[in-house]
Structures are given as structure tokens and as C-alpha cells.
Design a protein around this nucleic acid. Sequence first.
DNA 1: CGTAATCTTTGCGGATTTCGTATCAAGGGG
DNA 2: CCCCTTGATACGAAATCCGCAAAGATTACG
Lengths: 172, 172
Amino acid sequence: MASRSTDPKDPREPRGSRDPKNGRPALDDVSLAIIEQLQEDGRRPYAAIGKAVGLSEAAVRQRVQKLLDQGVMQIVAVTDPLTVGFRRQAMLGINVEGDLDPVADALTAMSEVEYVVMTAGSFDLLVEIVCEDDDHLLEVINKRIRSLPGVRSTESFVYLKLKKQTYMWGSR
Amino acid sequence: MASRSTDPKDPREPRGSRDPKNGRPALDDVSLAIIEQLQEDGRRPYAAIGKAVGLSEAAVRQRVQKLLDQGVMQIVAVTDPLTVGFRRQAMLGINVEGDLDPVADALTAMSEVEYVVMTAGSFDLLVEIVCEDDDHLLEVINKRIRSLPGVRSTESFVYLKLKKQTYMWGSR
DNA sequence: CGTAATCTTTGCGGATTTCGTATCAAGGGG
DNA sequence: CCCCTTGATACGAAATCCGCAAAGATTACG
């Protein structure tokens, strides 16, 4: 299991930047600082984090666990799939007629889809796809995605080379 | 430090799927299995991973350290920036005239740029940007990126909502 | 074939970290 | 004013991490 406690539930909560009730930000400065620490090294010990953010080891541990349970962050290994396997990867721009959500949910349910985001601009959705090979990619795009009800059109961007991939928005 | 050993160096090595010399894949099945374990839980203990992949704790530890040093994978906390801060995030499609690499390198050097990938299709590059606010986003796109030599045109897709974000290509 | 050289795995022991639990302080309600 | 919830700390026991030296495996070469 990715997390160590209660089942993950649905990570898509209405989690705004601030909790409307009780006014406090959903994430205070300390939690932000903890996340920054873990963005640098996901395995950094709780005691070291505590020293950096001014909290006891146990307090850090509890906060981290809550952040994981709430789905605010996940601690995982990330790779360049193109490097690791000999797979095909692509970004897909999608235009939808009618409600976006059903389409987005259907895409989210596909295991080959790693990333789904609603956007403003000439595409309604951007989705990233990781596949075994060309045949697999073709099948996912042409058979499974283009046939989804509501999908008006798609445009594909096959990945040639990943140049940068970071998660350090905190540190700058 | 993100990693525990020699300095990170430049992560952009010519890391193909297979090591040209000595023919063996850069990543054997065991390392793949280790990565899969860490994709589920980046903090899973080495002993547990060893039991899962059939290796001793020390062997797993050394392999993980090498994978980190080589830049094949990173173990980090990932979040939805839109959730964590009140930031603006966008994907940018870019068209370039001439050599792609200088432009890609310049983008890679920008701290606001989290993701740079070369693609086939109607864009040459896709880059993901994380900004503090609208002003910041505007400045990065219009002042810093559009003025890069070689950039012919850009198209922006401002993120409205992140629906899915996973790193589990291994487990299916 | 040997054998050297290199790389990988393994087996420890000690230092460190994690984890569960108990305790304490600070707010809300009722 | 008391009860209940939330969050931080303290602390001992158990598990984990880490460095190191020995053993094993693989490759290159004579």
C-alpha cells in the first residue's frame, strides 16, 4: 500500500487552497515547510525534518501521515518511463462537447493514463499516456479514448525525449 | 541534499533504455521490481523491498542508491501545486525554428519550469510551468520564454483542475 | 583453462530511526 | 465549568538504516 493507514478513499476532494470554514489555510506554513523537505528527499528522516521546521519528530510524523491520508501529497519514486522501459509516451489534447467531468473521470479510470488536467485554451483536457509500444498507444488513443461519448476531437504529441522533470516548486 | 552520496551532477545523461556497452539493459528485472515497490510507497523499508524482489536488505539499499545517483529515479513528495499554494499552473506548447536543444536547455534552467519534453506533433516542446500568480505567469511566458532566440510561437493552456496524477506504470 | 580485476551480494554490529502510547496544552461547544 | 477534539511532546521498545569486510559472480585477458 502506498500509505500506511486508512484506505486512500477518493483523492478528488473539493480541496481549495484554504479551508473555507475556520479560515485557516488547509496547509499552514509548517506543513508547507515539511513538504518542501520531502520534495528534496522523500526519505529524509522525521527528526531531520523536525529540526528544519522546528517541530518534534513525532509531530512531523503525524503531520506527514495526515498529509498522505488526505491525499495532499504522495511520496513515491518517479522515473522517466522512456528511460526505464521501451515504452511509448504521449500527451493528448482533447476537446469535449458537453460536460467535461464524465470524460475526465473515464480517462482517470484508465491505467495507461497517468495525468489528467482540465485546461483553459484550445484544449479542454490534457492527458498523459504511458504505453508498452506503438500498437498499445494506437489502441488506447483510437479505440478507447476517441470513442468516449463527448469526445469531439483529439490531438497527439508523442514524446521524443524528456528533458526535465522536477517537483521543487517550494524551493526558490 | 536530495541524494545521500556524490553530488547530483547533471541529470541529463544519454541514458538510453539499454547500456550500449556490455549489452545488458541499463535496468534489469530486479531493479525494475525495486522501482515498482517504491512507486507504491517511496518510504517502504529496504528489508520489505528485499523480501518482495528476492534480495538482501543491503543489496536493495545499494541498488536504490545507485539508481538515485544515476538519476534513473528520484524519491520525492509530489503534490498538486494548485492545491498546495494559490499558484497558477500552465502547460505551454512551443514551436521552434532551428535546433531544439538550446531552447530546451534554456527552459530547463528556469526554476518556474517543472517539466520539459520534446514531442512529435504540432508542437516541438511541451513545458509545464508553476507560478505564484497571474502576474508571475504572464511575466514568465511573455517576457522570458517568448523572447528566447529560436522560439517561433507559443500556445498556453492554463490549468483549471488536476484530476489525476500517478506514477504506477509498473503495476498493471 | 586459469587467474586477476571488477562488480554484486551477503552477513553482521552499532547507530539511528520509526512507532505506539501516554501525557499535556489549547480551543470549542453544550 | 466540564467534556471532547485536535495537535504537540516525551520516551522506551522494536525495527530500520548504514558502513564494512568477506564471499560470490562475472568479465577480461593471458
